[in-house]
Every structure is written in C-alpha cells, then in structure tokens.
C-alpha cells in the first residue's frame, strides 16, 4: 500500500479528519507540513498551539507533535510562555480569524509589538464557522451571515496590515488558491526569528459557501479572481504578498541583551 509522503507527520487515530468536504483546512495543513518537511524541522522539537475554532483543529489532534489546545483566543500567550521557557523549540500557532484577530486580537497586537519569537498562521475563512457562521472581524462588508442576515454593516480588519504595522518581522497573506507561494512563505518564516505572521484566506463551504450557494470549486475560483498582488488590490479585493520582512532581534534576544548586555 502506498503511503502519502506526509503521513508520518499525522496522528493515525485522528484520521480521517472531521473537516467538511471542500474545507480549506486540509490544503493549509498540507502547506504547513510540506514547509516543515522542507525546513527539516524535527517534529519532536516543534510545539503547536491552538485556540478554539475549525482552524485550531488543524494541528490538534492531527499533527503527530506536541500540541496544546487551549481557550478561545489564548493560543498566542500560551505559545509565548512555552517559547520563553524553551527557546530551542519551534513554537507555531495555528488558528482562525475569530480566534486570532477577534477574541485574541489584543494578544496578536502585542506579540507583534514585542516581536515575540513565534510563527502564527491565521486561517481566514471570513466567519465564525464552528459556531454556525456568525459575522467576524474579517467578514467582508455586506456579506450575509447568521448574525448579519441583512448583510454585514461593518468593515473588515486588514489583519496582515495591522500586524505588519505593529512590528512583526515577517508578514504575508495568501489564499488556499495560492499554495505554492504560501508554502514558500511558511518555509521562509520558519527560518526567521521574531514574530512571523502568515494569513491564509480559505473557503468555508458550509458556512459561507452554503449561504451563498457557492460550490467549493466556485469558491476557489472566486479566491483566484478576487486576489491581486499587494499594492494593486482594490478595497474589495484580497491583497496578496509579503507585507513586511525585517531582521530586528526577536523578543528572546532582546531579553538576553537586557540582562547580559
């Protein structure tokens, strides 16, 4: 029997996944694992931290590595606690837009400001999917959701832009229709220090696609058609690319400097 090359990275008893047919999470999981394999990260020395939401389930329980599945929004401070105590571990946060930029928004902002030595991967499916498709901080203006049945009256947060402004060393945004550059960004981010943030816009066939009567394949086409490179994207489009790439010392080195000069 042939086995997928990434099978060794997955926890057998967690398979098959519980993700909905057409969900982008599988594509994101694949990109993360391929980047880890290419970067030759020893999964025994990697820790995944996740909060609550569909994307949080990507690493926990699927990845065959240490993982902490904590309260909604609190993955980043948990991850920082680990990294500060065990700097040699590769600490990676995977979460959704509601988890990371909504309820965990304050932690995200300050982790970026501190340039905390973490890689945060935010899967942006535009809504709170696990709880039924409610409006979130990244929901496009006008989109109907289960709590904005007449369309979203508010405007979405440009999370990647905010994180770049807050002081992160590396920020990029892609979609699940742009897996090559996504994997490349993750690979690059794995090799850097400081705060690294990769946003992936991802389809939710159940909570967004379902409401819009948009089949998963149509959602992928929509992502392709509505994405433009950073600087060329209009306000209604998804801006793709690397927002920032800095080499400032990460929090760990900054703390070392303060104590040891």
């Amino acid at each position: 029997m042939s086995v997928h090359s990434l099978h060794a990275f997955l926890r057998p008893q967690a398979l098959p996944t519980v993700f909905c047919p057409g969900c982008g999470n599988g594509l994101v999981a694949g990109a993360i694992l391929r980047a880890l394999a290419r970067a030759q990260v020893d999964l025994k020395k990697a820790v995944f931290v996740a909060g609550i939401g569909c994307a949080a389930w990507i690493p926990s329980p699927h990845f065959l590595a240490d993982s902490l599945h904590v309260a909604h929004g609190r993955a980043i401070p948990t991850a920082l606690g680990i990294k500060l105590r065990r700097p040699e571990l590769q600490v990676i946060v995977v979460g959704g837009d509601g988890d990371i930029a909504g309820i965990g928004g304050n932690h995200l902002l300050h982790a970026a400001r501190r340039n905390a030595d973490l890689l945060v991967i935010m899967v942006n499916n535009l809504v709170y999917a696990m709880t039924g498709g409610q409006v979130g901080p990244t929901t496009p203006h006008g989109l109907p959701t289960s709590t904005t049945p007449y369309g979203n009256p508010e405007y979405p947060l440009d999370v990647a832009g905010v994180v770049a402004a807050a002081g992160a060393n590396y920020v990029a945004r892609w979609t699940t229709a742009h897996l090559g550059p996504l994997e490349q960004s993750l690979l690059k981010a794995l090799g850097q220090e400081g705060f690294r943030f990769v946003e992936v816009v991802s389809p939710c066939p159940a909570r967004v696609g379902g409401r819009l009567a948009m089949a998963p394949v149509e959602a992928m086409k929509w992502l392709q058609a509505h994405s433009k490179p950073l600087g060329q994207a209009g306000p209604e489009e998804i801006a793709l690319g690397e927002y920032v790439e800095r080499t400032r010392p990460g929090l760990l080195r900054a703390l070392q400097r303060v104590v040891h000069g």
């Binding site: 902490l68 904590v70 309260a71 606690g81």
Partner: peptide, 19 residues
C-alpha cells in the same frame, strides 16, 4: 503581559515547558 488573561495563559504554556 498585555492583560491578566495573557499572563495566566503564559503561565500555562511555561508550566508545560517545565517552568
């Protein structure tokens, strides 16, 4: 920490990292 919620979750992470 940025707030008390962050503080206690930092403790949880650190504790699992043997602190």
């Amino acid at each position: 920490a940025e707030d008390e919620i962050a503080a206690i979750f930092m403790l949880i992470g650190a504790s699992w990292a043997d602190a």
